[in-house]
Design a protein around this nucleic acid. Structure first.
Lengths: 343, 343
DNA sequence: TGTCTTTGTGCTAACGTTAGCATTGCTGAA
DNA sequence: TTCAGCAATGCTAACGTTAGCACAAAGACA
């Protein structure tokens, strides 16, 4: 690997001169600068950031710690972050936890050892104490989920309101046996969405047993498939179903298609997120659209500002993005007809 | 930030002792090792990889350079790579080029400055000369697309065969006006897929003008949408359509759904890739399934071996994964009835 | 002519870690 | 007693870059 020293020796100048020439130091004559740049280019010199970091410069890498990049929710975020950060000269590091706190810890240790400039994390349900300590030691922000013991900036969607809206839509159509399929309560998002579901039932004046909640791993397509199968074959089959995660929605849609369940005649469905395919599924899926891009851009901007300006964060403590209900054909009054829409 | 020196001072030993204790050097007494580890843990010491790299150690970061992580094709690859590499203690860096060679170059410069251990790249159509030079200077492999001037290891799918199969399926059903919608010929994958399309027509004994190729940006959903709209409203409307990229397929499916085109009665469609949603689209999409996981795992393993063992690569120069046609309901003889399958 | 400033460059130390080569104190053999 | 041999640890240099200070040459001014 070519170093400033190699260039210096070739030109018969000192390493300082080379370094300064490359940094465009005004004290160096234009002629020397030109010769240095020329040589650097010819020799294929590429500065060593590790060495620069040793001199106190900070890394230009920001890490994104998420459960699973295959989830299009997260890949959208990754893309948006990457795009915004590249403009500022930052690179993106990707760490997948698979919702496993030990994997999360392993990654945070690595990121810490690599001295990444910042971390954007979707925390697992209950991070290890060491994870919390590591995070506290670096600029970071939480995405979607918020872990209380990290008192840091948080960007999320209004989960409570999203599920309240989704459920209220079904209640308004007269459903009285509504099932909710979502993530576990130990996840902050899971708890909020469940609360939103319950709120809507309550506001609609429905009895407690009108709603039925099935909680489980939120990022498992298979779990969605299995649960909806169980729901439909068991007793007391609901007339409507609200979903509380994208992956669960994907599983449910697949299973319903496969079983040939008539939607919305036999079952009304409200999905979560708005993925490609949701619009062409059956009669079109009514779903809660999420402002993923806006949220990701917000994150990126906040992090960039945080990393550029030394002083403590002056931004708002949290940033809540609202979801919005996209009404398509998968919801109708219980036992109602299919909507007049070509399939 | 805590350094070995801080620990050394606190324990009244030398930095060497601390360093060796942490590296589990057999020359250090068990008691000292214990005290050092204890102190390190208490003080929250995290080794500085930048410093280690200066001493000749290599980075533990492998970069993935792709057009767009939102393309589920690439997010699957990223996931698979990440999973396989984490087991070996490597981290994944993500660089998106958006198929822009200048962005590609910017990223490669950064990766080079960061001294990443290796690069896995889906090259743009015509990388800059400097990009090629930079890549040559680091362990790397090409994914999907192969740029000739990099004589490096390549992992790809058998694009020619994939499109040959897809098209042959339509030819066998008697179609004689088949359109192909794919990426530009300047992309190696684009050229191969187009060649596969033409091969199938030729083998089927069809005249040259039976096939019609519409080439354009392969990762643009919108382009898929627009082109299919144009195809259907123009004169000489084809009876069958073969797609040559996932994103184009997504666009086409959306447009066909929206326009209410009857598939396969009015138009037979063969997609590319097998995304969630393809199975429940209309009558079920006949498509070319790609062995993404296997390919990604192959990449990861090759790269890991390459990075662990110093000597030159002894693996095969290329690794071709076959696609496989998944036949569902979106294809039928021209003017034929819908298949007997519940929608 | 002597001193002061300016311009351009060199020297050196420092960042945190590691590896080679001392150094110390001890045990056991000659 | 003397010294080899060993265990445990210390000292120092080096990795590539940068910043502070020093320094030489040349022009400016009295």
């Amino acid at each position: 690997m070519i170093t400033t020293r190699d260039i210096a020796e070739r030109l018969g100048v000192s390493v300082s001169t080379v370094g300064r020439a490359l940094a465009d130091d005004p004290r160096i004559s234009e002629e020397t600068k030109f010769r240095v740049r020329q040589a650097a280019s010819e020799m294929g010199y590429v500065g060593n950031r590790a060495a620069r970091m040793m001199r106190g410069a900070s890394s230009n890498v920001v890490a994104l710690v998420i459960p699973d990049i295959r989830n299009s929710f997260y890949s959208t975020i990754a893309h948006e972050l990457s795009k915004n950060m590249e403009a500022e000269g930052f690179q993106l590091m990707l760490s997948e936890t698979d919702d496993d706190r030990t994997a999360e810890l392993r990654h945070l240790r690595e990121l810490s050892a690599n001295r990444v400039a910042g971390v954007i994390i979707v925390p697992t349900a209950r991070p290890h104490t060491e994870s919390v300590r590591l995070l506290r030691a670096m600029p970071h922000l939480q995405l979607l989920r918020r872990h209380p013991s990290l008192g840091s900036q948080w960007f999320g969607v209004d989960d409570h309101e999203a599920l309240r809206q989704a459920t209220a839509h079904l209640v308004a159509q007269g459903h009285t046996r509504i099932a909710y399929l979502g993530g576990p309560e130990e996840l902050p998002t899971g708890a909020e969405r469940l609360r939103g579901f319950r709120s809507a039932l309550h506001e609609g004046g429905l009895p407690d047993d009108a709603g039925r909640a099935e909680l489980g791993p939120p990022s498992s397509v298979d779990h969605g498939r299995d649960t909806v199968r169980r729901l439909l074959t068991g007793r007391d089959v609901p007339t409507a179903l609200v979903l509380g995660s994208i992956q669960l929605t994907l599983g449910v849609l697949e299973e319903l298609s496969q079983q040939g369940v008539k939607v919305p005649q036999e079952l009304s469905v409200v999905g979560f997120g708005d993925e490609p395919g949701f619009s062409w599924w059956g009669p079109g899926l009514t779903t809660v659209g999420l402002p993923i891009q806006e949220m990701a851009t917000g994150c990126a901007l906040w992090m960039m500002r945080r990393l550029k300006t030394k002083p403590s964060n002056d931004g708002p403590y949290t940033s809540l993005s609202p979801g919005s209900l996209v009404v398509r054909g998968s919801t109708a009054p219980p036992g109602g007809k299919a909507p007049s829409r070509p399939v």
